[in-house]
């Protein structure tokens, strides 16, 4: 149980680091949105799962309730992230921001 928790914790911190690095390094709004919308969500889901495992280690009613609430947070993140991502990418496109493409290519549609 402990080992799984530490692996999830390390993975979550790795995902957060990668997401933040991508937020700084990537060239345009659309590709940064991949980082903010999904790598970060994956990181937070891993970290919350690690906390859930830590919480239900001592198993009784009060800890179980808190664990269920933590699972509710996790489920909400999983549900809300694609919706927020979609709202932002829709706003980007309607605002007329052109996607960044490599030299010598053009954006298709």
């Amino acid at each position: 149980m402990d080992i799984v928790m530490y692996v999830l914790l390390g993975l979550g911190l790795l995902f957060f680091t990668g997401g933040t690095l991508g937020l700084i390094r990537l060239p345009d709004v659309y590709s940064r949105l991949h980082m903010a919308g999904k790598i970060d969500t994956m990181g937070s889901i891993s970290l919350i799962a690690a906390l859930f495992l830590h919480e239900i280690e001592t198993f009784d009613m009060a800890h179980l309730l808190v664990g269920l609430k933590i699972l509710l947070v996790l489920f909400f993140q999983f549900l809300a992230s694609p919706t927020a991502c979609h709202a932002m990418v829709n706003a980007c496109l309607r605002a007329g921001l052109a996607p960044w493409v490599k030299d010598g290519q053009r954006s298709d549609p």
Partner: peptide, 12 residues
């Protein structure tokens, strides 16, 4: 060398 690896595009 991330800028060479990525290739953002819109596809339909």
């Amino acid at each position: 060398r991330m800028m060479e690896k990525i290739n953002p595009r819109l596809i339909t």
